[in-house]
Design a protein around this nucleic acid. Structure first.
Lengths: 250, 250
DNA sequence: ATTTTCATTCAAATTAATTCAAAATCAATC
DNA sequence: GATTGATTTTGAATTAATTTGAATGAAAAT
């Protein structure tokens, strides 16, 4: 077996399981313990994985690291099913906008590599998209430190040069009278611009955002279709008078 | 069997499997081991495949990706010391451009969080910069899958809206008469544009790039200062007639 | 304290580069 | 069309380099 082949298998296993013991890898590849160790040394030098006592783990970046909130498996499953549903709306040949954020990152993972053009303002989703071989454009501009979203005047100029078939927007609050809201005013403008540039716009948000409001108004309810999971009847009726809601069962 | 025919079969096998051993290829083609080796040497020179110990792999795919082991630890250390030196050139209040690439990524790691504005076209360096709390702007545009660099018309428009005090460019070849060269024409234009927009430009490259040439011309030698590590006298004299060279001891 | 894992070393095995003679291909002439 | 000599290609043999797996004692985990 070629060295490159072993390295590939090792990384493959890590991608699937997140970690692996030296013995596991030895069995999977058929190579000896010594050889696996040498491979791990090389791959660590190339910064492809992190070596730990007994084996190796994935090199986790800040963005791939699941936050405490995400780790709550209920919330995660909810996001995943919402993302999966949203991905189903995308058709071959579409040109779509993907907002920055964890929910949209999940959506990126569910995209099949169709004939697709994706424009995004969140650099975290980029890696996922490139892995899938999807044509990706990144909006330029100033980077907001915490979320890694592109904001500011340059970003607005940059996004204005595109037109989208569909846009998928993450949001912090959905309220019957205050509409869609988010924390950062600069992000809000970006989201609003993306919505205006789109033929169809979808807001994706888990049920906890329903009825909430945040600091900055993004748009009125009727401007987007809401994709969310199970929520209470009382909320549903008031909001559904103003726009379409797609409820995903999680 | 014709040589061209063997070459075709070899590439065919690689396309199907991603990699192949010398013995495999010998069996498939019916040629001797020696002949296959000679074929592989030729095909590697033509950049049709990548030779590895025991056989060969495809150039682009994920097989070769882990074998970024071209970046052996020695090379890595060299890059680190070059990056460290380059970081020392940056002054408080500077507005700098950081090219995409592994060397510039190392440079990002060595930046101290001064009062600094960084513009980059490589999305991999972004995370490092944000971690350090450095104000970061990302050039917009189409993402090149393999390197993760921003390229294309949008990227050029985007970068043209900035002006830099200093730019740091990664390069594949530095040659006394062909100047600075890199593999991808679209990346070459980006690099050239960044150089033109800068008050001072620095090319950072380890010694292996000296005397080499790649497909696309970026700029003439005199347009940038070269930052590199130890290299032979003969190369030094011819190139140093045309531009400044900063030699870093690794 | 015991077991597991790690780094280092070393010999065996595999693979690569080099050299050389035979075979094949080619060119020009008879 | 065959013959000869030059050139190229090929396969085998030799030597050099690399990779591999096991063995050892040190370090770490239980």
């Amino acid at each position: 077996m070629l060295t490159a082949e072993r390295h590939f298998i090792i990384l493959q296993v890590l991608k699937e399981q997140g970690n692996a013991t030296v013995h596991e890898l030895s069995e999977v590849t058929g190579a000896s313990i010594s050889t696996i160790r040498r491979d791990l040394v090389q791959l660590e030098e190339a910064e492809k994985l992190k070596r730990v006592h007994g084996g190796a783990t994935q090199y986790r970046t800040k963005w791939t690291e699941p936050s405490l909130n995400e780790k709550s498996s209920q919330n995660l499953q909810e996001k995943t099913s919402i993302a999966s549903y949203a991905a189903g709306l995308i058709e071959d040949g579409d040109c779509i906008f993907l907002d920055a954020g964890t929910t949209t990152q999940k959506l990126a993972e569910h995209l099949s590599s169709k004939n697709l053009i994706v424009v995004t303002n969140g650099y975290q989703v980029v890696e996922t998209l490139l892995d899938k071989g999807i044509t990706t454009y990144l909006v330029g501009g100033k980077l907001k430190p915490i979320t890694g979203a592109m904001i500011g005047g340059k970003a607005l100029e940059s996004i204005a040069t595109y037109r989208f078939d569909k846009s998928f927007i993450g949001i912090n609050g959905i309220h019957e009278s205050f509409g869609y809201t988010t924390a950062d005013p600069e992000e809000a403008i970006m989201k609003k611009t993306a919505i205006d540039l789109s033929r169809e716009s979808y807001v994706i948000a888990d049920h906890s955002k329903i009825g909430e409001t945040a600091f900055s108004k993004v748009a009125d309810l009727h401007e987007c279709t809401i994709i969310t999971s199970h929520f209470t009847e009382s909320n549903l009726t008031k909001i559904s008078e103003q726009t379409t809601i797609e409820v995903v069962k999680s």
